[in-house]
Design a protein around this nucleic acid. Structure first.
Lengths: 146, 146
DNA sequence: CCTCCATCGTTGACAACCTCCACGATATCG
DNA sequence: CGATATCGTGGAGGTTGTCAACGATGGAGG
């Protein structure tokens, strides 16, 4: 593998980004199977759990960078497992608020613990200062891309 | 969007990683359509171009983190467009070396230029020192994940 | 009030991608 | 020679990304 170090491709930030991202996602997914979740669903669950008043599906799509049609399916799966529920909004009857159930909060807490452990593999040897710096850089890349 | 800053999810490195990765890949793909390529094929082409003696498909799979069966299809598409060719290896007749054609080298050079421009959007505002640091961190994440 | 236009959720379709399993051909080790 | 491993290939099944259309609702302007 060292043969490829210094290679034009392995120096490419885009390539490194997707490679690292894939590795972390894989590790997280492996940890989440125990809870019957994939990263995608887990992300929706977390956002629903942290929004006391609920989240609209449009907001979920914007934050996660997904097409609204994907959010529909994700929420469908989560409601099917009784982890979240859709509630009509009184303010805007076009939207449907997604709220986490009690079971949803429990699963989220358990999954969050396992996911954190799994991610220690790829990210464990990063110092806290490095993580902060990485967070900052990645956030800037994201916002710059619009 | 600012509503979600400081949120448990938007602080998650895995989430930020896949979000930033997706943004860069999208931008790169948009730039590559003009050359009839996607990032995946482009990566294979680059590796083939830079290996004067050719690359085995196994090596491609390892470097790119892909299943060997995916590499087959990618090389098929590139050969179909006349950008690379498969040549039997004399040393090991199980393997087939992938080499870039003259047309492949030309397309690679043109695509590389456009891709670099497209990526300036998401990555442009990073200082050179930051890019180096990011490269280092991402490489370590990748190798740590095995 | 009413009309025009934007937005939200939903559905459907299609291409791309990932993951796993199995096979034939070849290499390597004992 | 024989057992085992590796390389490329093919195929199946599930997940993701992207796009177009639709009904229902909201909002702005006449």
């Amino acid at each position: 593998m060292e043969v490829f170090m210094g290679h034009p491709l392995t120096d490419d930030l885009g390539f490194l980004l997707s490679r690292a991202s894939g590795a972390v996602v894989r590790a997280t997914n492996a940890a989440l199977v125990a809870h019957g979740l994939r990263v995608r669903q887990y992300s929706v669950l977390v956002l629903a759990c942290d929004a006391a008043e609920g989240v609209t599906q449009r907001e979920l799509a914007d934050v996660l960078g997904l097409d609204p049609s994907q959010v529909v399916l994700l929420v469908d799966e989560l409601t099917g497992r009784g982890l979240v529920e859709r509630r009509p909004s009184e303010a805007d009857r076009r939207t449907r608020l997604v709220l986490a159930t009690d079971a949803g909060h429990e699963v989220r807490a358990a999954a969050e613990r396992d996911a954190a452990v799994a991610v220690e593999g790829p990210l464990g040897l990063l110092a806290e200062a490095e993580r902060d710096r990485l967070r900052d850089v990645l956030t800037r890349i994201w916002t710059a891309a619009g």
